[in-house]
């Protein structure tokens, strides 16, 4: 899952960015509204965390322009403004959620988790594909009831493929959703991650659960 965090407080960018990365998200951070809008329009994020009082371009304007451009990315407004009018205005402008500063990091993570889950039309944290079971809340994977340890990037890849199961997912889409802006697009990191993941989640003697569609990408078949 890839997130954009637009916040003018450098410290909050660092702390929340670190917490989100630790939770398994690929995170891009921006310090002002103009850069935030550009990033939101340019990349495919699963959710955007947006402060309201931003330099150069305020958060509501960013949200308005984002929606006007047709982007339907889920947006959580994270702001010190706590009045009912502010919340209503934010939600009516196109925000999907609203969280007032100061906030508890676990609550922010839970809300982001829900927003990301909602993007793929599911309301459950537990995803089951054959013998494979993924808990997107605790970020854990079990194969035939046994836990499978996955590095952060491989877990993100698996979660994305499971959320889009039975669909062919291109390498570009995978890169866009599980890597942040510092990812080197020329590397074959996706291919190697798929290869490694395939070995870990395929039961012995069984057909690989992740299959390659040459020239198109990968598909995780549920049947």
């Amino acid at each position: 899952m890839r997130l954009l965090f637009v916040e003018d407080s450098e410290r909050l960018r660092r702390y929340v960015g670190a917490a989100l990365k630790k939770a398994g998200y690929a995170v891009d951070v921006c310090g002002d509204g103009e850069e935030g809008l550009w990033s939101a329009q340019t990349h495919a994020y699963d959710a955007i965390i947006l402060d309201l009082m931003l330099p150069k371009l305020d958060g509501l304007t960013v949200l308005e322009r984002l929606r006007a451009s047709g982007k339907q990315t889920h947006v959580l407004l994270l702001t010190a403004r706590d009045s009912v009018e502010d919340r209503v205005r934010g939600l009516l402008t196109g925000a999907d959620d609203y969280l007032v500063k100061p906030f508890a990091l676990p609550e922010l993570l839970a809300r982001i988790h829900v927003l990301c889950r909602r993007g793929y039309g599911t309301k459950e944290s537990s995803l089951v594909v054959g013998a494979l079971e993924i808990d997107t809340a605790s970020k854990t994977v079990r194969l035939a009831g046994k836990p499978v340890e996955l590095p952060r990037r491989e877990y993100a890849l698996l979660e994305y493929l499971v959320l889009r199961r039975d669909e062919v997912v291109s390498r570009t889409e995978i890169e866009a959703h599980i890597h942040d802006e510092f990812f080197d697009a020329t590397s074959n990191i996706v291919d190697s991650a798929v290869c490694s993941l395939r070995k870990k989640i395929t039961p012995r003697g069984a057909q690989p659960i992740i299959q390659t569609r040459r020239g198109l990408g990968y598909i995780l078949a549920s049947k």
Binding site: R11, L12, Y15, A80, K101, P102, F103
Partner: peptide, 25 residues
């Protein structure tokens, strides 16, 4: 009052996020 609340909310949010992050790592 709004200004005071807002001025203090951001540093408090920073402190709380720092504490949450530190306790969880």
């Amino acid at each position: 009052s709004d200004d005071v609340a807002h001025e203090l909310r951001t540093p408090i949010a920073e402190l709380r996020a720092l504490a949450d992050l530190s306790l969880d790592s």
